[in-house]
Simulated scan of single mutants.
Amino acid sequence: MYSFEQLRGFVAVAEELHFGRAAERLNMTQPPLSRMIQKLEREIGVRLFDRDNRGVAITTAGAAFLVEAKRLLALAESAPDLARRISRGSVGTVRIGFTAASAYGVLPGLLDHLSRTVPDIDVDLYEMVTREQIEGLLTHGIDLGLARPPFDPDEFGSRLLRREEMVVAVPTGHPLADLERPLRPEDLQAEPLIMYSTTRARYFYDLVVGIVPVFHENVVHSVSQVLTIVWLVSARRGVAFVPRSTTLLGIDGVEYLPLVTEPRRPVELHLLWPRDSQNPALHAALRALQTLPVED
């Protein structure tokens, strides 16, 4: 097998087309350079140069080999720097899980921030509900989550990214829109309610039942995704409690009404990561995200 030293010798001769000048460029004498090229030709089984009294000319096979030799040398020279950058986390891949609702507003800003601050880190995106994100983080299927509380602080590091109001989505023209004041829980007790699933959207389910008494007979649908809920509201199937960021969806046939709650901004979204992660790119991304402002 040929060596990188042989490749450097070959490239020097190919570019100079003169063994003497190539040897001087490599800080060596001509005889060992000639022997190096002869050995390289034997090892790869082709003639790389035509030599006669008039000089040196590269063969067709030699010209093709020159392209690959330069590529191999460039890779060899860049490999140590690449390894060091990977070790520092300045290159690599971060896999981010996100809820559908978190994509409205927070995710684009987070991706833009990473692109500016750590541009050589690749980002892979996975849409998941919070429960799926927790499982993915524990098994290291993803590196970061945009998820809802609660979390186990022994397993996960977390940082609050957004705190926002809960509003009421109603079909356009609904009588509640005529009240011209923030809604109170008692305004909604008789309304058909599009509710969150107790298993796949537990965070929002618990949040809603903590705000307003939910009577089973009032629930017309139970689903897990905010987008589905808003589509059902637009179809006049009922009313629903959604985060204020849902207004960014721009779905026709829906109005969003303010709601009196305590606290005023009960909906939280957190950045979440496994404490035992060994991915250097994750730690570089976390350092970059320290300067991402909290939306409050």
Results as ranks from 00 to 15, higher is better:
residue 288 A to F: 05
residue 180 E to K: 15
residue 227 L to T: 12
residue 290 Q to C: 09
residue 215 F to M: 08
residue 220 V to A: 02
residue 252 D to P: 14
residue 256 Y to E: 05
residue 253 G to F: 08
residue 262 E to F: 09
residue 224 S to Q: 12
residue 257 L to I: 04
residue 285 A to L: 03
residue 274 P to G: 08
residue 180 E to N: 15
residue 212 V to Y: 01
residue 249 L to Q: 11
residue 286 L to H: 05
residue 278 Q to H: 11
residue 265 R to A: 11
residue 199 T to C: 08
residue 184 R to W: 09
residue 193 L to P: 02
residue 219 V to M: 02
residue 263 P to F: 06
residue 200 R to S: 14
residue 223 V to F: 07
residue 256 Y to A: 07
residue 251 I to P: 08
residue 267 V to G: 01
residue 202 R to Q: 13
residue 270 H to M: 05
residue 183 L to M: 00
residue 241 F to Y: 12
residue 226 V to L: 02
residue 201 A to K: 01
residue 253 G to P: 07
residue 248 L to H: 10
residue 182 P to M: 06
residue 242 V to C: 01
residue 222 S to K: 12
residue 245 S to N: 06
residue 261 T to I: 03
residue 198 T to I: 14
residue 205 Y to L: 04
residue 271 L to E: 04
residue 289 L to P: 08
residue 185 P to V: 07
residue 185 P to I: 07
residue 255 E to P: 11
residue 198 T to G: 15
residue 273 W to L: 03
residue 250 G to A: 10
residue 277 S to K: 01
residue 288 A to Q: 07
residue 192 P to K: 03
residue 215 F to K: 12
residue 190 A to G: 12
residue 268 E to R: 13
residue 285 A to F: 00
residue 263 P to I: 07
residue 278 Q to E: 15
residue 203 Y to Q: 01
residue 254 V to R: 07
residue 276 D to N: 13
residue 198 T to N: 14
residue 187 D to Q: 08
residue 276 D to H: 13
residue 199 T to M: 12
residue 184 R to N: 10
residue 243 P to V: 03
residue 277 S to D: 03
residue 221 H to N: 10
residue 207 L to P: 01
residue 264 R to F: 11
residue 213 P to C: 06
residue 201 A to G: 12
residue 235 A to G: 09
residue 265 R to S: 10
residue 269 L to A: 02
residue 193 L to Q: 04
residue 271 L to F: 03
residue 279 N to I: 06
residue 276 D to I: 06
residue 249 L to N: 05
residue 183 L to A: 01
residue 227 L to G: 13
residue 182 P to K: 06
residue 217 E to N: 11
residue 255 E to D: 15
residue 292 L to A: 04
residue 185 P to G: 07
residue 226 V to E: 11
residue 209 V to S: 08
residue 255 E to W: 13
residue 230 V to Y: 04
residue 244 R to E: 15
residue 188 L to I: 04
residue 280 P to W: 06
residue 184 R to E: 14
residue 267 V to I: 13
residue 212 V to D: 00
residue 206 D to E: 15
residue 261 T to Y: 01
residue 234 S to Q: 07
residue 226 V to I: 12
residue 277 S to N: 02
residue 281 A to H: 04
residue 239 V to N: 01
residue 181 R to D: 05
residue 256 Y to C: 05
residue 196 Y to E: 02
residue 255 E to S: 15
residue 283 H to S: 13
residue 213 P to F: 05
residue 245 S to C: 07
residue 234 S to R: 09
residue 255 E to G: 10
residue 246 T to C: 12
residue 266 P to N: 06
residue 206 D to C: 07
residue 179 L to H: 12
residue 268 E to L: 14
residue 213 P to Y: 04
residue 262 E to G: 11
residue 222 S to R: 15
residue 208 V to G: 01
